[in-house]
Amino acid sequence: MKFGVVVFPGSNCDHDAYYAIGNVLKKPVEFIWHQSEDLANCDAIILPGGFSYGDYLRTGAIARFSPVMKSVEEFAASGGLVLGICNGFQILCEAGLLPGAMIRNSGLRFICRHVYIRVEQTDTPFTNAASKGQILKIPIAHSDGNWTVDDGTLAELEKNRQVILRYTTPDGSNDDAGNPNGAVHNIAGICNHERNVAGLMPHPERASEAALGSADGLVIFRSMVEALVGAAKATA
């Protein structure tokens, strides 16, 4: 089992994702340079947070054309696990690997704080170690996290249970009040139809140790580990 963390020149959460997987979970992990088309036999790919190519145009708009994304698209098409965090989520939307698009936060400002998100679905490789309805405390840090999509696609996503994480309050009672950025249906994270590609705006890698204020984010990476272990057993 090996994780790959893609490094775009403006990635700035690449080290954090690497640390959460390599040092906290103690699983093999390596960096993959954005100009490489070789995914180094990784079993799961993380697109980390940051500002890929500066994002002066539109978040992730240039990153989708990078050489590494060609390989990531092929990898995803063949069933490989791909997780986009924050800027990674934005890139996956731009690349068409996930539906929808990001617009500016409803408050038109960058926001960094802990938010609460509810695990809506657990039959994905990204949430299988969590329990349904579990509330996770994880920080966000973005200007453009207001995820939006047309009504038809939204209905389909809800019907297919592709909304895997939703903003809420600490006690889970009021999703609208817990929504920091105006995302439609309070959506914090989704997966694709095949459930092997997911994106989320909160940063699970920043919530991987109690000393940082929360270790709730680890469950996302643990789920991926379990999915990979399960897949390895199935093929063995």
């Binding site: 959460a20 960058f110 920080p139």
Partner: peptide, 13 residues
């Protein structure tokens, strides 16, 4: 302070 990224690099205690 919420307009600043305060937790990147996962060192902020």
């Amino acid at each position: 302070t919420e307009q600043y990224d305060t937790s990147v690099r996962t060192n902020t205690l």
